[in-house]
Computed example of a mutant assay.
Amino acid sequence: MINVLFAAGDANWADYQLHLAAAFERQGLVVNLQTSLAPDQTDYIIYAPSSRLLDFAPYTRCKAVLSLWAGVEKIVTNTSLTQPLCRMVDPGLTQGMVEWVTGHAFRYHLGIDANLEAQDGKWIRSVPPLASQRSVTVLGLGALGAACATSLARLGFQVTGWSRRPKQIKGVTCHAGPDGLTKALRSAEILVLLLPNTAETTNTLNADTLAALPEGAFILNPGRGTLIDDDALISALDSGQVAHATLDVFREEPLPKTHPYWAHPKVTVTPHIAAETRPGTASEVIAENIRRGESGEPFLHLVDRANGY
């Protein structure tokens, strides 16, 4: 019997209980899944920041902490957490992100907003370029960034990607490091932010990097609110350096009603819906990692503590 503690909040328990049980059964795992277990009896912890669990030190038997969230910034710095930590890379979450990014990229590419605003009875034809004539840059080439970059490249866009360390993705021009960031930004007619939230990525978009973009660039941020210096972005929108920004994530959520983004004519706010962990597919990822732990195989999506993701 494998004892698994579900330390992810009451609301998540209602969503996940049956999905996890079914996933464990499909893996042939005999699991005792509980919302309360003695630390010395716990083999694995399924975790979300909504949990009241803060001290992992007593869980000396625990083989891994399995996060239900893709972002682990709220747990990775916990000094009591010495067990292996796995972040969530969920096929449903990935597909949702690809659909959000692709949809909004095409919205900008085709000029859909401008066409809607121009419906005043005047027959003015404005033909958009083909995707092959449009440059899109994706900052962050992890699982989500790579999936979005690949999808956009398959649709014909000229796609550039940037990451801290060198990567290779078919159909994508990849840059890395500080010099590579400037190169990636210079071609970004549409810029997609999918970097993790770390000290190194805070304010990646600031006055200097925004100035490196082509004039009239469009910005999509489904990554992390901390990636953008909000004041610098508003200034760039006001000057025309940035034509429009669609933002799904913010430093404070829900976004306060008084925040200038709500009223800005060049900002579209979406309420953190670009990608959501789906209980059905996420449960399969959790079950597979427990199977791996029991078989002595490497865990999937193991967090690098030094890098924070």
Rank of each mutant, 00 (worst) to 15 (best):
residue 224 R to G: 00
residue 224 R to E: 03
residue 224 R to L: 01
residue 226 T to S: 13
residue 227 L to D: 03
residue 229 D to V: 02
residue 229 D to Y: 06
residue 229 D to R: 07
residue 230 D to H: 07
residue 230 D to V: 01
residue 231 D to Y: 03
residue 232 A to W: 08
residue 233 L to R: 04
residue 233 L to M: 12
residue 236 A to K: 10
residue 237 L to H: 09
residue 238 D to E: 15
residue 238 D to H: 11
residue 238 D to W: 08
residue 238 D to N: 15
residue 239 S to A: 04
residue 239 S to P: 07
residue 240 G to S: 12
residue 241 Q to A: 14
residue 241 Q to K: 15
residue 241 Q to V: 11
residue 243 A to G: 11
residue 245 A to P: 03
residue 245 A to D: 04
residue 245 A to G: 05
residue 245 A to E: 01
residue 246 T to H: 09
residue 247 L to Q: 00
residue 247 L to I: 04
residue 248 D to E: 02
residue 248 D to Q: 02
residue 249 V to P: 00
residue 250 F to C: 06
residue 252 E to N: 06
residue 252 E to M: 07
residue 253 E to L: 02
residue 253 E to V: 00
residue 253 E to Y: 02
residue 254 P to R: 05
residue 254 P to Q: 11
residue 254 P to S: 10
residue 254 P to V: 03
residue 254 P to K: 06
residue 254 P to H: 10
residue 254 P to A: 10
residue 255 L to W: 03
residue 255 L to N: 02
residue 255 L to Y: 01
residue 255 L to Q: 02
residue 255 L to C: 02
residue 257 K to Q: 15
residue 257 K to N: 15
residue 257 K to W: 13
residue 258 T to Q: 15
residue 258 T to G: 13
residue 259 H to F: 01
residue 260 P to Y: 07
residue 261 Y to C: 01
residue 261 Y to P: 02
residue 261 Y to G: 01
residue 263 A to P: 00
residue 263 A to M: 08
residue 265 P to S: 14
residue 265 P to T: 10
residue 265 P to F: 13
residue 266 K to P: 05
residue 266 K to Q: 14
residue 266 K to I: 07
residue 267 V to G: 04
residue 268 T to M: 12
residue 269 V to E: 03
residue 269 V to P: 03
residue 269 V to K: 03
residue 269 V to T: 10
residue 269 V to M: 05
residue 270 T to K: 04
residue 271 P to K: 11
residue 271 P to G: 12
residue 272 H to M: 01
residue 272 H to V: 03
residue 273 I to C: 15
residue 274 A to P: 07
residue 275 A to Q: 11
residue 275 A to T: 06
residue 275 A to E: 12
residue 275 A to M: 10
residue 276 E to K: 15
residue 277 T to Q: 13
residue 278 R to A: 09
residue 278 R to E: 09
residue 278 R to Q: 12
residue 279 P to T: 10
residue 280 G to C: 03
residue 280 G to W: 01
residue 281 T to E: 12
residue 282 A to Y: 02
residue 283 S to Y: 08
residue 283 S to M: 06
residue 285 V to L: 05
residue 285 V to N: 08
residue 286 I to H: 11
residue 287 A to H: 06
residue 287 A to Y: 09
residue 287 A to N: 04
residue 288 E to D: 13
residue 289 N to G: 06
residue 291 R to A: 13
residue 292 R to H: 03
residue 292 R to A: 02
residue 294 E to W: 01
